[in-house]
Nucleic acid binder design. Sequence first.
DNA 1: TTGTAAGCGTTATCAG
DNA 2: CTGATAACGCTTACAA
Lengths: 346, 346
Amino acid sequence: MPRERGADPPKRITSHDVAARAGVSQSTVSLVLSGSPRARIADATRTRVIEAARDLGYRPNLLARGLVQRRSFALGIVVSDLDNPFFTEVVSGAERVAADAGYGVLLGDAREIPAGEHVQRLRERQVDGVILAGVALDALPPDALAGANVVVVDEPSDTHPGVASDAFGAGRLAARHLLELGHRRLAFIGPASESHTFRMRERGFVAELREAGVALPSARLRRARPSVAGGERAMRALLREDEGTTAVFCANDLTALGALKAGAAAGMTVPGGLSVVGCDDIEMARYVTPELTTVRVPARGLGARAARLLLLALDGRDTGALTRKPLEVQLVLRGTTAPPLAESCP
Amino acid sequence: MPRERGADPPKRITSHDVAARAGVSQSTVSLVLSGSPRARIADATRTRVIEAARDLGYRPNLLARGLVQRRSFALGIVVSDLDNPFFTEVVSGAERVAADAGYGVLLGDAREIPAGEHVQRLRERQVDGVILAGVALDALPPDALAGANVVVVDEPSDTHPGVASDAFGAGRLAARHLLELGHRRLAFIGPASESHTFRMRERGFVAELREAGVALPSARLRRARPSVAGGERAMRALLREDEGTTAVFCANDLTALGALKAGAAAGMTVPGGLSVVGCDDIEMARYVTPELTTVRVPARGLGARAARLLLLALDGRDTGALTRKPLEVQLVLRGTTAPPLAESCP
DNA sequence: TTGTAAGCGTTATCAG
DNA sequence: CTGATAACGCTTACAA
């Protein structure tokens, strides 16, 4: 039952109330309740205060605390798409370490409201730091991040620390796997530019092919939004315009799932007639049939690490160790890849 | 590059600074910047202030504002499991309407830290209201919610407004569909008690069966955590202990996905040998093969509605209209259900 | 050991 | 129309 507007102003209990009940001054209350664990306070007073607080059900007002300490003990995280399981994993990883450290987590989804706007708002709310995931830095207003503590996930930046996965390596891994299976007519499906990570996955893939002397004709390089629908559409187009493709690497799992769907709809058998490799290893990858071969990117690890990094930075600690090298990715062999059919070989 | 600890205290720009630059008093700045749209302010001063603010890049401190207004313009949302796509959809729906209304969204995942603790913290942060999803109210400390603006998703409460889906109806729908296909040996997989919604789904299912004179022997009522792993395990057990089952209804899609996996692993063909119905219609449901027949529950609609409801309540507006009837659920026919094989019929 | 007092950055109430 | 001035609830020197 919602409180009536202005009906019963349910008196907030403040440290003054506690002070009154305990018969001490307000600052003493503050001292024992939040001050250094062993502030010089007589045991008698201390317990009196604590009891009074308990009796009254006192809860400190963190806004007030934040105001004076100039620190909110909250951090913001803005992601490009909350419906992408990869990002929810990042969020969930970050939320966990933040909450464990007593930090609040403010969430922003950049689909409706642009990332820059979210960052702006978060800063007005005085978050101590911001994690950006799936957000291209150069898409933000010039100094949206000026003077802010920011950690970027999977984006390069020479102004902010970041955590990243080895996207280039992911592409290489996928290519190598497919090459080793004997595929020579490979395709790639991925977004046009979007984020750095996607670009690097593509480059890694292409680089590995080139080194193996295998070409990637433009007809087999399909652009698509990194979603299931995007992958589906791109795959349909690929099947329509190109006959010989025996294997395709998708920029992320969602895309791969779409490709799988389109492939099935077109009567392709996977992996018999077509091999598919995804990237991310979202949970879903294991639930499709056949299970998706993919390159595992530790999403929740990225989120957790980003949060840890941010917390360290907030404490003025050295962030070097965490920011160094990209998190390793790993090929996960499952059911959507196999050698090409004999007749498909060049 | 993280700011050095205490190195350059990047002076926060306050309304005082703006006042100084505009040559007016601080309160005037506040007046023009946040006061009622057409506060009685000379146009000259107004523009002077606005320019000064722009030049300085002034951003109001929402903590300070919240402190004096006793309102933070933020709301909290705590969910039982951030990795369950159903809840991330709820969150995403709520985030969207909250953000559109200028509210901040604080997130809490109850897997690591209990929901009650999250609520506590959110209240200390002075959130104006809290949305609870997947959280059983009676699992919370007695007066964790006392005097708070709370909206519960898919849980009954006579003390707080809530939004709910027609869980009982969902169970009925699933049962009716299966019965109409000709199934008579039905099973149910779901959690022991967990949340009210799960209980109602089960009851609706059972009620419909009973009305049709079909029994649900205890061997076909399997308990499982509402996750893929849970469903998998339960399905394995079911297949081991019971031969005749021709169709199973799972308390949620995750469970159904697990059941599908276990079924496939055991060599069952779906829907030929076994029909499976899920509940929720998470995105994933369309990406498995065959696609999962399920009962669609409008998760993001629930989240959005919960947020709207909360915002209304915060404005002291009537919440009756929104809180009335449960959101409708809908059977989504896809590929995991079919008539039982002839030999399977009793 | 504990109380007094000065803010933190806003909004809000009044005078002028 | 605009400027003092008093909160908001808390932390933190500095006194006592």
